[in-house]
Measured scan of single mutants.
Amino acid sequence: DWEDIVRFLRKLFELGEEVVIGDWHNHHREEIKRLIEWLEKHF
């Protein structure tokens, strides 16, 4: 279910905002944000 995936990604992203998950999070933050925005537009 796409909504569950979007919710999971958003939760992960919000957690990442508070607890910076090292370089991985910083590197992928923009991609995650773009992916969430893309999914919201399409689903």
Rank of each mutant, 00 (worst) to 15 (best):
L39V: 07
E3H: 10
W38C: 04
W2T: 01
F43N: 02
K41H: 12
G16E: 07
V6Q: 03
E37F: 04
H25E: 10
E18Y: 10
E3C: 09
F43W: 12
I32K: 01
H28T: 06
E30V: 05
G16R: 02
H28E: 04
N26R: 08
D1A: 11
G16F: 15
E18R: 13
V6C: 08
R10W: 15
G16W: 15
E18C: 03
H27Y: 06
L39M: 03
E30S: 05
K33Y: 06
I32Y: 07
L39N: 00
I36P: 00
L9I: 07
K11P: 01
H42M: 14
L15M: 06
E17C: 01
K41S: 08
I21T: 14
D23I: 12
F43H: 06
K41M: 09
D1Q: 08
L9W: 02
E18T: 12
E40V: 14
I21D: 08
E37M: 10
E3N: 05
V19L: 14
D23K: 05
G22M: 04
E37V: 08
I21G: 08
V20I: 13
K11R: 11
I32V: 03
I21Y: 02
E31N: 08
L39R: 00
E30C: 09
G16Q: 04
G16H: 10
L39D: 00
R7I: 06
H28L: 15
H27M: 11
I5L: 11
H25M: 15
G22W: 04
L15F: 13
F43K: 04
E40I: 14
F8D: 05
W24R: 09
K33T: 09
K33R: 14
K11L: 14
R7V: 02
L15K: 02
D23G: 09
K41G: 07
V6E: 06
H42D: 03
E37A: 07
I5R: 01
D4E: 09
K33S: 09
K41T: 13
E31I: 15
L35Q: 01
R7M: 05
I21A: 11
V6D: 02
F8T: 03
E18N: 14
E37W: 09
E14Y: 03
K41N: 06
W2L: 03
I32P: 00
L15I: 07
H28R: 10
L15C: 06
L39C: 02
R7N: 11
K11S: 06
L15R: 03
D23H: 05
L12T: 00
F43D: 03
G16P: 03
R34I: 09
R7L: 04
G16K: 04
N26W: 08
H25F: 15
H27G: 07
I5H: 01
E3M: 11
V6T: 03
E18S: 13
H25D: 13
R34P: 02
I21C: 11
D1F: 15
L9P: 00
W38E: 05
W24T: 06
E30M: 10
D1P: 14
I5T: 01
W2P: 01
D1H: 12
E30G: 06
L39S: 00
W38L: 06
F43I: 08
V20R: 07
N26H: 12
F13Q: 02
L12M: 05
V20L: 13
L35G: 01
E18M: 14
E37I: 09
F8S: 06
E3K: 10
H27V: 08
F8A: 11
E18A: 14
H27K: 12
E3Q: 12
E40H: 13
E14I: 07
L9D: 00
F8W: 13
K41A: 07
K33M: 11
